[in-house]
Simulated scan of single mutants.
Amino acid sequence: MTNTTVRTDADATYDCRQVFAEELITLAREDPRVVAVCNDSVGSSNLTGFRAEFPDRLINVGIAEQDLVGVGAGLANGGMIPFVSAAGPFLTGRALEQIKADCAYSGHKVVLCGQSPGMAYGELGPTHHSVEDLSWLRAVADLPVLVPTDREQTRAAIRWAYAFEGPCYLRVPRFKVPDVIPPDAPFGPGRSVTLREGTDATVIAIGTLVSRALAAAGALAAEGISVRVLNTPFVDPLDEAAVLSAAAETGALVVAEEATLSGGLGAAVASLVGQHRPVPLRLLGVTGFAPTGDASYLLEHFGLTADGIRQAVHEVLAMSSSAV
């Protein structure tokens, strides 16, 4: 766990897929082993520039996600470094067996890039929402699961995945977010970033929910409530020491993620603190299938907003008070 100074870039927000595209091209220029594999998703994966510069290093398998992952594993077995890119729900849902057997169990160095995760596809509905991916892939052994928060952390995640000697799953955010992670923040398995100190409760957040957690902490400070904001970009392996310290030092936890509550970050935190440091806990995430609406509406529908997080903090503090 590292304490940092939060970046403040006013109200500017950014599409992290652009960073993904730029960083992948940079890596390809540095290393001829880097290749991209996609499922007829050159545009949505932001691989147009990569294809223009490296036409022989982009493999488009068409709408065949099981083949997508299998081809990626074969390339890795041949000494290449494949970045396998597709919309999150199709990459993880359709090719889960290949992810388990061809990548994780076989130990092949494949970077699985889940594009536009969470509910970023909005009105396209639950078929295109990637909210189960964290649950599915946390259950697969030897497969780190990464959820970067902003441009800086997305860049760090891509660089880490490139250097890692095994497979991993990386969410590539589509929902525009502000820059909140300091450039000097650490990045690695089991390492978290404390973005705000606090003593009354801790909000543990990833991805699109981090900036909202910081906004909630600011609003709560005006009410005289001190909230720690902890970012855990590795959902697996989790920074267990930081989570347990937060539970011990602040006495109440809220976990916020753009994912189903069944098996994701919240489930990982609940399992950990339930066994080692039980405290009042509130999990915020997606429950059931989403209604029709754009991404912003859906986040609000499920309470994944600054105000939703603020209310959850009040709930865990009330639980703490009633337990005394």
Rank of each mutant, 00 (worst) to 15 (best):
L317W: 05
S320M: 13
P117G: 01
G264W: 03
A201S: 03
P291D: 10
N46I: 08
A268D: 14
P89V: 14
F164S: 06
L238V: 08
C38Q: 07
V19M: 08
F20M: 10
I99S: 01
G62Q: 09
A323L: 14
V313W: 03
V42L: 11
H128A: 05
A323E: 08
Q275H: 09
G74L: 15
P148T: 13
P148A: 05
L299A: 09
T5F: 10
N3K: 04
A246S: 13
G88I: 13
V177I: 11
L47S: 01
A290L: 10
R196Q: 10
V269H: 14
A201G: 01
T8H: 08
E249K: 05
P182E: 04
F187I: 08
G79L: 00
V111F: 12
Q18K: 08
R174P: 02
I81W: 13
R151W: 08
L284H: 01
E315N: 02
N77T: 15
L58Q: 00
S271R: 15
K100V: 01
L244H: 12
A139K: 09
V210F: 06
Y121S: 00
A156Q: 10
A221G: 06
T154V: 09
G293W: 15
M319Q: 08
I25Y: 02
Q66T: 14
S226N: 00
I99R: 01
V61M: 01
D102Q: 08
G224V: 15
V61N: 02
C16H: 08
